[in-house]
Amino acid sequence: MDAELEFAIQPNTTGKQLFDQVVKTVGLREVWYFGLQYMDNKGFPTWLKLDKKVSAQEVRKENPLQFKFRAKFFPEDVSEELIQDITQKLFFLQVKEGILSDEVYCPPETAVLLGSYAVQAKFGDYSRETHKSGYLSSERLLPQRVLDQHKLSRDQWEERIEVWHSEHRGMLKEDAMLEYLKIAQDLEMYGINYFEIKNKKGTDLWLGVDSLGLNIYEHDDKLTPKIGFPWSEIRNISFNDKKFIIKPIDKKAPDFVFYAPRLRINKRILQLCMGNHELYMRRRKPDTIEVQQMKAQAKE
């Protein structure tokens, strides 16, 4: 997100060995959310498998091979769950990049509020002496769509954000990052993986996979789930070819079937479901020794 790291790998280096090197270098311990993503030979973003050799995976031939270190799974509640500052920082950098690059839609007034928390996270408290007018001129503050949609000048936008920045006086940089993540999470700006699906009639709908389960959305409203499948209600998920089957815990209830356009999509949906479900179950078990130690350290 904010640095480039280069590693030499051997022909039999596994994905896990490479991933472990990256997280050790970055100092990250809550590794279960993250993965290494590469573009495959067909140009599709693909997660590096940890159990296979890097050389045996279809990473597009470049020198050096390109990977992105990204969050693959997201917490249920960002303000409660993330233990270390570095974890929050990595999520913050990724979510901010997603919003500033218009990957997700962000309404203008929210964009200004989020921009002001990002400024607080970078500069700390606003002070007239150190933050002369123009101190934001080289900052990426707002999504391009917001800048294009409104006739405000760059200076006028900066002025609005400056007003909010001074409002945040006394807020720690880490807390500003967390506020940013909390607001973005409330507005569903991250954490949900959307897939286009159809019902038997062929109507286009969205399937959302997130930390709490699966949701079905109507095509014109990705923010309001119409049908929900919490992990607690699901016994099994499987697919064959284009047909996806969700089996309920309640044996008397009917299986739920939907259709996804391509086999590769089904594989991705299934992989995300397995990973999110595993984290969902892990959260409901007692903390491992390592997590207990991390929480104690973070509290200090």
């Binding site: 309404p107 007034e109 929210t110 200004v112 509020l113 909390k182 607001i183 409330d186 507005l187 569903e188 019902n199 038997k200 009639k201 109507t203 709908l205 709490l212 949701n215 079905i216 109507e218 923010l223 309001t224 789930p225 119409k226 049908i227 929900g228 499948f229 919490p230 209600e233 309920p248 309640d250 209830a253 009917p254 739920f256 939907f258």
Partner: peptide, 30 residues
């Protein structure tokens, strides 16, 4: 205003509770 809007969103993050027959019926009728 933006904060209130964000907080209000927190409420309807989840679909309404319903049994699987209802899920089926709703989905087929979209």
């Amino acid at each position: 205003e933006a904060k209130e809007k964000a907080r209000s969103k927190r409420a309807n993050k989840r679909a309404p509770q319903m049994d699987w027959n209802k899920k089926h019926e709703l989905f087929s009728n979209f």
